[in-house]
Every structure is written in structure tokens, then in C-alpha cells.
Amino acid sequence: MNPKKPLEPTRREWTKAAGMAAAGVAAAGTLESCSQPARLQAWAPVSIYRAASYSEELYGLVRRIIAEHALDVRGKRVVLKPNLVEFDAHTVINTNPKLVHAALEAFRAAGAADVRIAEGPGHRRVTLDLADAGGYFATVPNFESLFTDLNLDETTKVDFVRPLSKLKSLYLPNTVLGCDLLVSMPKLKTHHWAGATLSMKNLFGVVPGGVYGWPKNVLHWAGIPHCIADLHALFPKTFAIVDGIVGMEGNGPIQGTPRTAGVVVAGTSPVSVDATCCRIMGLDPARIGYLQLTAGVQNLGEELIPQHGERIDSVATNFALLPELAGLRLSR
């Protein structure tokens, strides 16, 4: 998909690192392993662009991002995976449909053979009603024909090779297993359990409720950060576009407060995108469990993540944290 992609750990490298990490969970409140992945030279670059609102300018912005990362999607099947959780008119829980539609148009313009929108919400069973309430029907023409409810999709059993979590396998939707590029499109939010919910945590939505229920509670019992890391390993062909125009702070991912950050963050490495988003929210990525497990603390340094567009410190805004998560605050 991206021949120039530099130094994102390959699945084999990740599996090796994951196996080592699974051997032990370290002290000092981290999920570091005794032997972390080898130190990287650099991650794939991350784009940080200002976007003041959900305006028509997003259409040009996403096209620019696709070109900047040299994504060749000609003739490919692309699946856009927004974050649809619940709807509350008083706050901003879900990925804004305008950004998703901008991505749909941009990937079509880039020559993708098929672009679908797909999601499997974790609490509400009637996904189309949730999407309607969230403005998807009003914003995306022919939304229903473009949408796949991942909770109810055809599934295939996938075995984890060396899982970090307690799971040995998962049934997963064929729509995401069969695509050439999965585009994870989360909202920039704090999360009351995981610290932050971004492009990697967004993959919980691919686990089918039709098999595991609403919520997908097997993931909680198997270890949230560990399952995030395992799902990340299963989908190496993932591009991340984060809706940070208006995010959520405090008691995210559902009951928090809207917080304007005015950014769109994107890249071919979900790890580096999520680490960058953490810094933008004022969280230390090295203290986020799933990032520790996936990359190793020593590989999460800001200097290892090349950036296009804005500098982190020019767009960073400290998101409010629950008292329980105060220890995640980044020292600037």
C-alpha cells in the first residue's frame, strides 16, 4: 500500500515484541516488558493540520493528506471506520460525519474501487438509528447503501499468533478482513479506562456484537490495553485520520465535555498518530498502556515521529483529565 513507509514495525517484528511483552508486566505502573522492541530510528510521519470547523475545507484537506502520505489506493477496497458509540445532543461523542464524507470523497477521487463506511457500536444495537441521530444520513448521500454494520457482518475466525491479551482468537467481520486499507477515524477523546481513545482503541468497533454482545465485554475481561494491542497487530494495513476539530475531555468516551482542539491528525502508523494525539491533549503517550505494549516506552519519543504541518506545541491544548488519570499528564 505504501512502499515508502518507514520503520513501522512489521507484523513479524511486532509479534516478536509482543511475545516478549507478554512474558512480564513491569512495575512502576507501566505495561513495559522486560525486553522491549528494538529502538527505532523513526516512525512513519504524522500530519497535523489545523481545521477550525467542519467546513467544506475538509474535503481538500483530506485529499492533501492522502497525497502527502503517498497512499496508492487505485483499484483498492477501502473501509472507513468512524467512531460511533452513542448519541447525545449535548456533547460530541462520535466522529463528525463531515470528516467521514470528506474521506469518502477523497479516497474515491484517489481511485479506490470501493469505499465503504463501517462500524459496530458497543452499546446501542440499532446502528442505523445511531448513525441517523449522529447526522450520517443527512451528510453522506446514500449512506445506508454505503454502510456496513460490523456487529452483524459475515465473520471469519482469526487466531492470534502470540496474543498479549487472554484471547486466543476472535471472530471478525469479513468487510474489514477483506479490505485493502482500513482507515481508522476516531474522535480525539480521553477515555476513563484506557487514558485516550484514538485510532487503535477505535478498532474495538470491528469486534462483532452479533457474536460477542453489546458491550463487547469479552475484551474487557481479556485486558483492554492488551486487546487494543492485539487488534492493532491484526490490521497492519491501517491508515489513521483523527477528528480533533472538537474532541472530548474529562470522562470520555461518552460522558465527557466537548473540547475544541481544531486539528486533524493523520498517518500510516496508528502508533505514531495516537502518540502524537496524546501529546496534543497533554497526555504522556509513554504512560498509555496500549502504546507501551505495542511500541515500547523507548520508542514513543516525540523526536522519533516526523511531522508534517503544524508543530505539536502550536496546537496542543491540555484536555481535562479525571482525577484518577492525573498521572497521565504530560510534562511540557
Binding site: 460477542y212 454482545g213 453489546w214 458491550p215 465485554n217 475481561w221
Partner: peptide
């Protein structure tokens, strides 16, 4: 009752 064996109980099931 849980949705899936080994998980917690929920209202639906």
C-alpha cells in the same frame, strides 16, 4: 446472564 460465556451479565441477555 452474559451475552457470551465468561463475560459479565448485562440487561439484554
Amino acid at each position: 446472564w452474559p451475552w457470551y460465556p465468561g463475560a459479565a451479565a448485562w440487561v439484554g441477555p
